[in-house]
Amino acid sequence: MCDSCGCNITPGNEHLVRADGKHAKTEDGRAAVTVLQALLSENDHQAAHNREHFDRRGVLALNLMSSPGAGKTSLLEATIEALGQELGIAVIEGDLETENDAERIRAKGVPAIQIATGSACHLDAHMVHDALHRLDLSGVDILFIENVGNLVCPASFDLGQHRNVTLLSVPEGDDKPAKYPVMFRAADLVLCTKADLLPHMPEFQPERAEGYLRNLASAAPFEILSTRPDGDLSPWIQWLRDELHAQRARLELGRTIRPNIQKDGERQHAASTQGTHEHHHHGQHGHHHAHSHG
């Protein structure tokens, strides 16, 4: 990523990266080129554009992640019932196959675009971008992106969302954050779902699940809820209202935010900008800085 603006070029390695200059040689005469580029820079670039698109439309974009069957779609159905009269909601659904989830959302009167990923185990920024071409965002306040049910791969791909919400359902066991640290570290909010099953599963201790989350150095709120009719959704609904309010305040200041996880590209960048060389704000590099302000 940093290679595009040249900010990782220092007087010490400049000779290695100049396309027209002499290269450092290995012992057997090959040219050695220092790159220091984030491997997912293509995806991150598209994600930055998606985020700009959301910000221009005044939309708060939330990425919902969990294992399959943790209750993402049920949570969205209950959320639409609670907030659908008051706020504009749209949904992008990711699954390997079927339109089932999108149909469940549409039945609640909310626009939903289904992305069938085929064999891909996660959504990426390009898939979301394609889906956005089919989705009218006018009047939409919150866009939920329901990722493919998977606690591994989705955590590695920025989609352009503002926040990550990770669900952990009671039947999965309370040690999931310890087993899948990459996923839970990426969460801005962890929802412990299917709380109605807690009386039947005493082996699941919410305090222990939250303890494993804190071991990941995460300060993300941990909320316990159930989407059953007698369940309490209020912490989630309040979080959504607060995030929407925060998003509007940011937009007024011309700022944006990305999920509460620092990517290697940014750290690389931070390290190199502490040096003595000049760098210029343009292109992708410019977005990059804007995103770290939130």
């Binding site: 090959r30 040219a31 080129v33 220092t34 220091l36 580029q37 491997l39 150095a217 300060a219």
Partner: peptide, 24 residues
Amino acid sequence: SFKTRLISGDELLLANLELTIPDD
């Protein structure tokens, strides 16, 4: 304390290449 910041461990970087360049 859990108020820590990761300074290494989530890198996914293309660090270096060795190339064959004719007449270089």
